[in-house]
Design a protein around this nucleic acid. Structure first.
Length: 621
RNA sequence: GCCGACGUAGCUCAAUCGGCAGAGCGACCGCCUUGUAAGUGGUAGGUUAUGGGUUCGAUUCCCAUCGUCGGCUCCA
């Protein structure tokens, strides 16, 4: 039987395979053209207008707000007299197709604010937008526009919308077979939770029905890879209602992977000049007062517990503890840099609605470290940290990155000159490492600028893992010092960094990236020996024993099942090697190898198999 | 937190109008002794998330609580 295979991504016949690599290249090529100027952008923007028309026909008293194109589609926000149902979406979608078939031209008209106000006199949200436009308007990054924008409206059929454009020439240019309304959701007006909750309809629109199909298929693939689903199916982790939401239970197989990653990283840290430390999970209120967390971070911290009349808080960060270690001695300039690393488990309050599997949780373990160094060392330290981060991420199979350089926010502590110096150091480090990056203007923490590294997974989705942050705050607050060459006390620089970020989120990304088919070195079970009949059991155990002796994680499937069933289960569990053992293998002293890709290299000696496995492990596959 | 949808066996899902809570897979116990993706027979498994209400009777209707899912940055 023909079998569709993907050796890179561990996809199997029943999952169909997508050539992700090719897709990524295509996407990169497309980025040459700015989305805002593309045909797709116009199509989606126009589809949003058509949808708004359909919705307002249904609810003439409804208020419409904004409806921009987004990645893969568009949305439009409305205030409506009742909640929309999935059935409504079908009706709206049908009406949209009728409007499209009407071949209505999109016509632009610029006009003075007062005239616009007359047109939208019953539309309070539009009036608010006109107000904003009059005061100068904002670009898509929320920055004030240099020039005062003109006010324009677009009309098609009987529908008028305040809109900058651009649009397609006519509704006919929207392919009715390539649009689909996806979901309805709540969204605050202007994203502000103090403002009214609107109803947002999400839609998707493409040039062709094939592209729509492909997009829908991509969503299906994402579902198949969902770490919450794979976490259960592969018995990696769970969340128990009894324990509490956002709190992760690592099952033996998930924990095995974590132990492997942590051990690898632990060794790498030692080789890179870090020292390991441990610190407790709670600390006295006074510590968090000194650190400023009770002032700046309290809404993310849990209520204190009372210990003999003294308030203690679960730690949301590890820094104050590492600082205490630093402060336990007088430090000389010769001692620096000090690099303290810890797998530090922290607890942060996340609002119930934002929790998500492993990627947004309430308790998690960071691969955290704090670097205390002299000002003249900081640039080198940043560069080393970035280098190390890339090394660790690549080692675990994540190879596609984008950096975000977050700069000084409105509220900040410290000297702007220091900020500038630090920001430049971060920028030079990114550029030296040749990673694509964007500047997140004003996105820094109040205590310092930072580099966030985001990873693109196999479906080209972006995840934030690493962060490298300057801290101008804590060294001041805790009055950190080192004695310089001049015999005088000086203030060290402090850098906070996490590479995999949190073990939980990292694991979630890893699961989805590999769709559960982890590289051999990380697979909790690397090989399963499959005896064909009972009489092959003893030999199977002997084989397993030898492989275990060679350091492989091996199981024998000694269930009273047919070989086919055992193979199927091993495939489902995405075990890298299946070693089938029957009369022939016993006679030859061999094993018959089958790979999870479906490849069937056949009988080979144990020695040959071990060499092959070792090669795969060394390659990191 | 807010808006919406949802919560039935370990998993995926049924159960008409309010009238005895079911199936497949998995688990367990047998039989078969197997050659590259599911052999076969049987058994167990449920306070229908929790608490309350309406009713002769509630998985079904109502209320509350807990939890899950999608969304709440991307400005006409």
């Amino acid at each position: 039987m023909a079998r569709v295979l993907c050796f890179n991504h561990g996809c199997f016949e029943d999952e169909i395979c997508i050539d992700f690599t090719r897709k990524e290249i295509e996407m990169a090529e497309k980025k040459e053209e700015r989305y805002e100027e593309s045909d797709l952008y116009r199509i989606r923007h126009s589809a949003a207008h058509v949808m708004a028309q359909a919705v307002l026909e249904m609810f003439p008293e409804g208020k419409y707000t904004i409806g921009p194109p987004i990645e893969d589609g568009f949305y439009y926000d409305f205030e409506l007299p009742r909640s929309l149902t999935p059935d409504d979406l079908e009706v709206i979608e049908k009406r949209m197709r009728q409007i499209i078939a009407g071949d209505h031209a999109f016509e632009k008209q610029t006009l003075p604010a007062d005239e616009a106000r007359r047109i939208f006199k019953d539309q309070p949200y539009k009036l608010e937008l006109i107000e904003g436009l009059e005061q100068g308007g904002y670009d898509e990054y929320g920055q004030p526009l240099a020039e005062k924008p003109e006010i324009s409206i677009y009309t098609h059929d009987k529908f008028v919308d305040l809109c900058r454009g651009p649009h397609v020439e006519s509704t006919r240019k929207i392919n009715p077979a390539a649009i689909k309304l996806m979901s309805v959701a709540g969204a605050y007006w202007r994203g502000d939770e103090h403002k009214p909750m609107l109803q947002r309809i999400y839609g998707t629109a493409w040039k062709s029905a094939e592209e729509l199909e492909q997009y829908l298929w991509r969503l299906e693939e994402a579902k198949r890879r969902d770490h919450r689903r794979l976490g259960r199916e592969l018995d990696l982790f769970s969340v128990s209602e009894e324990v509490g939401p956002g709190l992760i239970l690592w099952h033996p197989k998930g924990a095995m992977i974590r132990v492997l990653v942590e051990s690898f990283s632990q060794r790498a840290h030692l080789e890179n000049g870090y020292e390991w430390v441990f610190s407790p999970h709670i600390g006295r209120a006074h510590l968090w007062e000194t650190s400023g967390h009770l002032d700046f971070y309290q809404e993310n911290m849990y209520s204190p517990m009372d210990i003999e009349g003294e308030a203690y808080y679960a730690k949301p960060m590890n820094c104050p503890f590492h600082i205490q270690i630093y402060k336990s001695h007088t430090r000389s300039y010769r001692d620096l840099p000090k690099r303290y690393a810890e797998y530090g488990t922290v607890y942060r309050y996340e609002r119930s609605g934002v929790l998500h599997g492993l990627t947004r949780v309430r308790g998690f373990t960071q691969d955290d470290a704090h670097i205390f160094c002299r000002p003249d060392q900081v640039e080198e330290e940043i560069s080393r940290a970035l280098d190390f981060s890339l090394y660790i991420l690549r080692s675990v199979g994540l190879k596609d990155f984008k950096a975000y350089l977050a700069t000084i926010p409105e509220k900040y502590v410290g000297d702007p000159a220091d900020w500038d110096k630090a920001t430049q150091a971060l920028k030079r480090a990114i550029e030296a490492h040749n990673i694509p990056y964007v500047v997140d203007q004003g996105g820094g923490a109040f205590y310092g600028p930072k580099i966030d590294l985001k990873v693109n997974d196999a479906l080209a989705r972006e995840w934030q893992l690493s962060t490298i942050q300057f801290d101008f705050n804590l060294s001041e607050r805790f009055n950190l010092e080192f004695i310089g060459e001049d015999g005088q006390p000086h203030r060290p620089y402090m850098v906070h960094r996490a590479l995999l970020g949190s073990m939980e989120r990292f694991f979630g990304v890893l699961i989805e990236h590999f769709a559960g088919a982890f590289p051999v070195w990380l697979s909790p079970v690397q090989a399963v020996v499959i005896p064909i009949a009972d009489r092959h059991l003893a030999y199977s155990r002997e084989v397993a024993g030898k492989l275990k002796g060679a350091g492989l994680r091996v199981e024998v499937d000694d269930r009273n099942e047919r070989m086919n069933a055992k193979i199927r289960d091993a495939q489902t569990q995405k075990i890298p090697y299946m070693l089938v053992v029957g009369d022939k293998e016993i006679e030859l002293g061999a094993v018959a190898l089958r790979l999870r890709s479906g490849e069937n290299p056949g009988a080979m000696s144990l020695q040959d198999f071990l060499e092959r496995a070792q090669q795969d492990i060394d390659k990191g596959d």
